[in-house]
Nucleic acid binder design. Structure first.
Lengths: 318, 318
DNA sequence: CTGAAAGCGCTAACAA
DNA sequence: TTGTTAGCGCTTTCAG
C-alpha cells in the first residue's frame, strides 16, 4: 500500500498523496500496528533492558542514561526487573527475546546456564553492564568492583586506619557487592589486616538500617576505627548516627560508602564514596547497541570505566 | 502445527508427542516469536505503564506494586518515561499503543488532546493513576492532591502555626504538586491566612536544595513558623539544616513534607508527611487491568485512596 | 510515482 | 489426537 510508504517517509510519494494520507490518518486516529510491521520487516525498534531493581537509586540513573542516548536513534528501551532473582531474570529474558528486540542490555555477567544460552543465541547485540570482573557473552561495559574494593582498602590503610568493619546487604545474588567485599578484603590482606567485624542486613529503609547496624557494630566492637559500607544509603544512615552520637569523624572514626549518589551532597558532612559511573555506563551501553547496525555485528567490546574515590569529609587526609 | 499447542499447553496432545516437541525445542534453543503469535491471535500480554520519572523514589514504588500484582497473571508490564514532558508522553504513548497492549496505566489525568484521543481509542482498558482531581478517560486510581494539601493546611493551623512558607519544585507540568499547593492555599485562606513566603527549585540533589531553600527562606522571612515542602526529600534536607542550626522544632518551627518515603525513618527526627499510597495505587491499577477481561470492558471505575497525615516529630501536638 | 501480490511465523478453525 | 488451511496487518518486491 502507498499508505505504508507515507507513514514511514520512505520511497517516493507525491506531496499531494502524502497530504491526503496524513490527513486521513489523523482523522481516523490511526495508529499503525507495529506487530504486523515487525513481523513483515523482521525488524523491531526495541532494546530490552534488564536490571535487578529500581528501588536503590542506582539503576534508575543507568536507565536514564540509556533513554537519553537512545533518544533520537529510533530505538525504544523496554525495561524488565528481576529483583535479584536468577529465575526471574531467566523468565524476563525469555519474554523479552520472544519479541525479537534489536538489542539487549542486561545488568551483571552472572547468569543461569539457560539465560546465558539465550543471550548467546539472541541474534542481536548484547551488552552486559555494571561489572567487568568475569567473561561476558558479547559486549561488556562497567567497572571492576573487585578493584573498586581493593582501591578503597588501600586508601583507608594509607590514611592510617587499622580496625576496619564492613557493613552491607545480605544478598547472595548481589555479585557486585560481593566482589567489592572480596577486593576489599584482599586489599586489607596485603597489609596483613583482616576485617575487625561485619554486619549484614536485608530489607527495610536503608538509611535506618545503616543507623542500626552502625550502632550495633560500634557497641559490639568499640575499638573499630573505620566503617566501610556497601552502599551510600546505609553509609549516610551510619554517618548521621555517628555525628549525633559525638564520634570524632574522621579523626577517630572514618567512614566510606559506595556509588556516589547525589543525596550525599545534602548531608551535613560529605561521606567518602566512589563514583560507580552509572549514567556513563548506561550511555555507553546504549551507544554500542545503537552503533552496531552500522559496524556490523562484530561485538565483543569490553569497556572498563574507572571509578574514582571521593574522599569527602569522612576519611582523614595526610 | 501441533508444536504450537504443546508450547502453549493447549488442546489435547499426547504425552509422547509433547515430550518430543519439548525436547526438540530445548535442543534448538527455540524461543517462540511473539510477534507472529500476537498478530495471529490479536492478543498481546503486555501492559504499558507510563510515568513521568524514575528518579524520585515515588514511581519506582508504583511500578513495583504493578509488577508484583501482575506477577502471575501472564501479563507483563512495559515501562515508559516522559520526563514530565507532554510531548514525550504523546510519543511514548503512541509507541506503546502501536504494540496493541492489553492495558495501559498512565500517571496523571492531564494529557494533550492528541494523547487523550489515543487513550480513548486505545481499545484496551486504561487506568490513569496518582490523581483523582479531574475527569479521567476510563478508570482512575489515586488520591486527591488538592484535598491532601487542604488537610495538611488544616492540621498545621490546628497546631497553632500562622506564618507559613511553601517550598517546592518549579515544574509547571507537575500537576499533582500544583494541586497540592492550590489545596493548601485554599485551606489557609479559609482561616484568612496567606502564604508568608514561597521558594521554588529545579534540578540538582533534592536534599541539598532543601537545605539551601530553607536557609534562604528563613534568612529572608525570619518570623516564619512553618515550612511546608512539596516532597519529603527537600523536607528532609530542610529538617537537617534546621536541626544543625539550632532551630526549636517543632516548638517554634514546624515542618512537613509529602509522600511518606521510608527514607524518613532514618532521620534523627521524623518529618511530618502524608502517605501518598504509592504501592497501593500500583497494585489497584494492575488489578483493574488484570481483572477486566473477566468483567468485560465496562470500565470507568474511580478508586480514591485516602492519604493520612503522619505527624512525626515536626508538628507540635496539642 | 503508484498498485498488486507474496509472505513474515504464528493461531484458530476445521478436517481427517 | 493430529494435520491442514487461511489469515492477522504490515513490508517488500516487482509491475504498471
Amino acid at each position: 500500500m502507498t499508505v505504508s510508504r507515507v507513514l514511514r517517509n520512505r520511497g517516493d510519494v507525491s506531496d499531494a498523496t502524502r497530504e491526503k494520507v496524513l490527513e486521513a490518518a489523523k482523522e481516523l486516529g490511526y495508529v499503525p500496528n507495529k506487530i504486523a510491521g515487525a513481523l513483515a520487516s523482521q525488524r523491531v525498534n526495541l532494546v530490552g533492558v534488564i536490571v535487578p531493581s529500581l528501588s536503590n537509586l542506582v539503576f534508575p540513573e543507568v536507565l536514564s542514561g540509556i533513554s537519553q542516548e537512545l533518544e533520537d536513534t529510533g530505538l525504544q528501551p523496554v525495561f524488565g526487573v528481576t529483583n535479584y532473582s536468577p529465575e526471574k531474570e531467566e523468565s524476563v529474558l525469555y519474554e523479552m527475546l520472544s519479541w525479537r528486540p534489536s538489542g539487549l542490555i542486561i545488568a551483571g555477567i552472572e547468569h543461569t546456564p539457560a539465560a546465558r544460552a539465550m543471550l548467546e543465541n539472541a541474534g542481536a547485540p548484547v551488552v552486559e553492564i555494571m561489572d567487568v570482573d568475569g567473561r561476558g557473552v558479547d559486549s561488556v561495559v562497567g567497572i571492576s568492583h573487585r578493584r573498586a574494593g581493593l582501591h578503597m582498602a588501600e586508601a583507608i590503610l594509607a590514611a592510617g586506619y587499622r580496625r576496619i568493619g564492613f557493613l552491607g546487604t545480605k544478598m547472595p545474588e548481589d555479585h557486585r557487592a560481593r566482589k567489592r567485599l572480596e577486593g576489599f578484603e584482599e586489599g586489607l590482606a596485603k597489609a596483613g589486616i583482616t576485617l575487625a567485624d561485619t554486619e549484614f542486613y536485608s530489607g527495610g529503609s536503608a538509611l535506618l538500617k545503616g543507623r542500626e547496624m552502625t550502632e550495633a557494630m560500634l557497641k559490639r566492637t568499640p575499638d573499630i576505627d573505620f566503617l566501610y559500607y556497601s552502599n551510600d544509603m546505609i553509609g549516610a544512615g551510619g554517618l548521621l548516627w555517628c555525628l549525633e552520637n559525638g564520634y570524632d569523624v574522621p579523626g577517630k572514626l572514618g567512614l566510606a560508602g559506595f556509588n556516589g549518589v547525589d543525596l550525599l551532597d545534602g548531608l551535613p558532612v560529605r561521606l567518602a564514596t566512589m563514583d560507580a559511573c552509572r549514567r556513563e555506563i548506561g550511555r555507553t551501553a546504549a551507544q554500542i547497541i545503537a552503533g552496531r547496525p552500522h559496524q556490523g555485528l562484530i561485538g565483543g567490546e569490553v569497556v572498563e570505566l574507572e571509578p574514582v574515590i571521593q574522599y569527602g569529609d569522612t576519611i582523614r587526609r595526610a
